[in-house]
């Protein structure tokens, strides 16, 4: 069929199909998008981990009550054991979300690593252990500690906040590293598009000079380069983001116990497939971001290059 002499769609007056390769640039952008997806996943996963540790471990406190069955100090008309008194005091405190004494079986389970698997009752006088959840991880327990000590002298409050704080700091530094990696990937993507555009400008110099001589504005010429760079970056980033998905899903399954203590039995069955929910929003934005990088970088590069023409 004879080609219509009418302007075809995507009329390539500058011959950019030859200049901006439809293989190399999309491949490089795909690699950048793949790395960006990993960095984004790291960023959101580290944020989720930090949040989890802050809300979980940092809000947990263990209270040990020695001689739990002994009568509490200052017992009046209604005598109570030290354990019951401590529990009552804990449950009354507004900073405490819940307080629950561990059963003998749970205590045995805790001690098993040190004392062996024998289930014989121990002759040692064991303290009672109360698992406490704080309403706020930052709540101060100083006043409560004094009150508990008064009701049941020798009671110990062991906060998990220090370890949780350290783990949170670790997660936050991971998050910062992921953010830096994302910035570096963005900078490299800008450089890749700029180099490809400059190479295209050098290759098509004669065509650009002819079109410029015919009265094409800088905007006209830059728009053609930008359209091509945007399209190639978009396609590359779609491929890169899609390629990252299987890797991310695999990593999510492997890392599930770290981010979620109650690891789901079938991670792929839940809507987020084990990935941080925000990642599902961010992944489709990657090709859009790549397209914006392609458009802006090509525009700036071409405009600055065209300044050399009169």
């Amino acid at each position: 069929m004879a080609r219509s002499p009418l302007r075809p769609r995507g009329f390539d007056d500058l011959g950019l199909q030859r200049a901006l390769s439809d293989r190399l640039l999309p491949f490089l952008v795909a690699a950048m998008a793949f790395l960006a997806a990993l960095a984004l996943a790291g960023f959101f996963a580290a944020a989720q981990l930090a949040r989890h540790w802050q809300q979980g471990a940092a809000a947990s406190v263990t209270v040990q009550v020695p001689a739990p069955s002994a009568p509490a100090a200052g017992a009046g008309a209604a005598p109570a054991t030290r354990l019951k008194r401590v529990l009552a005091l804990l449950r009354k405190d507004p900073a405490i979300a819940s307080a629950r004494a561990l059963s003998a079986a749970e205590l045995n389970a805790l001690l098993r690593p040190w004392l062996g698997a024998e289930s014989r009752p121990l002759a040692l006088p064991l303290p009672a252990v109360i698992a406490v959840s704080l309403a706020q991880p930052t709540a101060s327990l100083a006043g409560l500690g004094a009150a508990l000590g008064k009701a049941a002298p020798g009671t110990l409050i062991e906060s998990h906040g220090v370890w949780a704080g350290r783990l949170t700091a670790l997660a936050e530094s991971l998050q910062a590293s992921a953010a830096v990696a994302l910035l570096v990937v963005t900078a490299v993507a800008v450089a890749v598009v700029a180099v490809a555009t400059r190479s295209g400008l050098a290759t098509r110099r004669e065509a650009i000079e002819i079109v410029h001589g015919l009265g094409a504005t800088d905007r006209y010429i830059a728009a053609r380069f930008a359209a091509r760079a945007t399209r190639l970056a978009l396609l590359g980033a779609i491929a890169g983001a899609a390629a990252s998905l299987p890797v991310l899903l695999t990593l999510a399954r492997v890392a599930a116990p770290f981010g979620r203590l109650e690891a789901p039995a079938a991670p792929l069955a839940i809507p987020t497939a084990g990935l941080p929910p925000l990642l599902w929003l961010a992944l489709p934005l990657l090709p859009l971001a790549a397209a914006v990088i392609g458009y802006v970088t090509a525009q700036v590069t071409v405009h600055s290059w065209l300044r050399r023409l009169p």
Binding site: R3, P5, R7, F11, D12, D13, G15, R18, A207, I210, V211, L214, G215, A216, Y220
Partner: peptide, 17 residues
């Protein structure tokens, strides 16, 4: 422009305009 037909070469000033 070597990659354009005679038609497209002649049409170029009009398209730019």
């Amino acid at each position: 422009l070597p990659h354009l037909s005679a038609f497209d070469n002649v049409a170029l000033p009009l398209r730019i305009d």
